[in-house]
Simulated scan of single mutants.
Amino acid sequence: MSAIFLKRPVLEGAIAFHRKTGESCYFPLHRHEAMTEILFIAEGEADYWIDGKHYKARAGDMVIFRPLVWHEERSRIEAPFSFYYAGFHSLQVQGLPANHLLEDDEQPVFSVSSNVERIKHLFQELCDEVNEGWSEALTSSGLLLELLLLEVHRSKHHAAGKTARLSAQTAITKARRYIEERYHEPLTIKQIADHVYLSPSHLSHLFQDAYGESPIQFAIHQRIHAARRYLTTTEFSVEQIARLVGYESVTAFQNLFKKATGLAPGTFRKEALRPSESQ
């Protein structure tokens, strides 16, 4: 099992749907108490209403329905329509609530165009395995489902480029280095998360677990460390140092510095440069 999955998913079912031109595929408003559903659009287009919002999905798109989320589905009849479906429960993805493949603020419809053939092949294998009707002890459907979910997870979170497939440890290490090199810039959590191909909430969770603070708190601490260095090794004014470490407002810098060190910047400099009593 991938390290991404802390708890194995249990397959509820998988099937391939095919509709000819003029035939509608419609599922009225409904929800599932504890089951997550994933759909892969192989051909045609369909309209989805998920949690009160409308989405249009076309060939190459994934659609994900979380538990307890109301949704409605209707295909377009102007052309053939085909999609693959799998439902499961008991999944636990690292950093996400139970049975979630996405953060709550992420879009439930997204393209997997860079990984279409792999995902389609796994869906077809999963559907074939389920249709064979093997006993639970003999089926490989559970493993196929895990492989499929792994590919969906990769496609969603790591599709921005060939360097995007990062382990959790690599991602937070890269995020830390990014902050260390750019602490003086007006960083946002989204900017940092985009750099390592994670959602802001997922990165924050991983970073907090690894370093005991959020990425933005870490950036502030880097600014304070740099300011202390400037104060004790240069003759720059407090105003100059504030700008060098990323603060347009001198007052904001002074307040944050005093909160972090217990001293105002000017007082800190005097205390640090005062000769010791032994000299």
Rank of each mutant, 00 (worst) to 15 (best):
L147Q: 15
I241T: 11
S237V: 04
R182S: 05
G13E: 03
V238K: 04
V250D: 02
S75M: 09
I64E: 10
Y85S: 10
A86I: 05
R154Q: 09
G52V: 07
G87H: 07
D104R: 14
L206W: 03
E125I: 00
Y211N: 10
K258L: 07
S75T: 09
I189C: 06
I4K: 10
D104I: 11
G142P: 04
L148Q: 04
I192K: 01
V10H: 04
I119M: 14
I38L: 15
A252V: 12
I216F: 04
G246H: 12
W49Q: 14
L206V: 00
R31L: 12
G13K: 04
Q279N: 08
V250L: 06
R228F: 00
A98H: 06
L11Y: 07
S167G: 13
G262C: 03
D47R: 15
I241D: 04
L138N: 10
G87M: 05
P9D: 07
H158S: 15
Y197P: 00
G52Y: 05
A242Y: 01
E239W: 00
E73M: 13
V196P: 08
P9M: 08
N255T: 14
L101A: 08
A242F: 02
I179N: 01
A164C: 15
K56N: 09
L138W: 05
E33W: 03
W134R: 15
H89S: 15
Q191K: 05
Y197S: 15
D47M: 14
V109R: 03
Y230K: 04
Y26V: 15
L138K: 13
H121A: 12
T251E: 11
S276V: 10
L263A: 11
K20R: 14
E146D: 04
E103N: 06
A272N: 08
F83P: 00
N255Y: 09
A3N: 13
K190F: 09
A171C: 11
R274S: 13
A42K: 11
G44R: 06
A14G: 14
T21I: 12
V116T: 13
E136W: 09
A159L: 00
H221F: 12
H202E: 10
T139H: 04
F83D: 01
H30S: 07
L231C: 02
R176F: 05
L143I: 08
N115Y: 04
Y55V: 00
F65G: 05
R31H: 09
F207K: 11
H30N: 09
K120A: 15
C25W: 12
R165H: 11
E248A: 13
S2Y: 06
S204N: 15
Q254L: 00
N99Y: 01
D128P: 00
R31D: 03
T139S: 15
M1W: 04
S135K: 08
P186F: 03
L96Q: 10
A210L: 01
L203T: 03
D61G: 00
L198R: 10
Y48V: 09
T251G: 01
M1S: 12
F236V: 00
R58Y: 06
V196L: 06
F40D: 02
H89V: 07
H30F: 04
L263V: 01
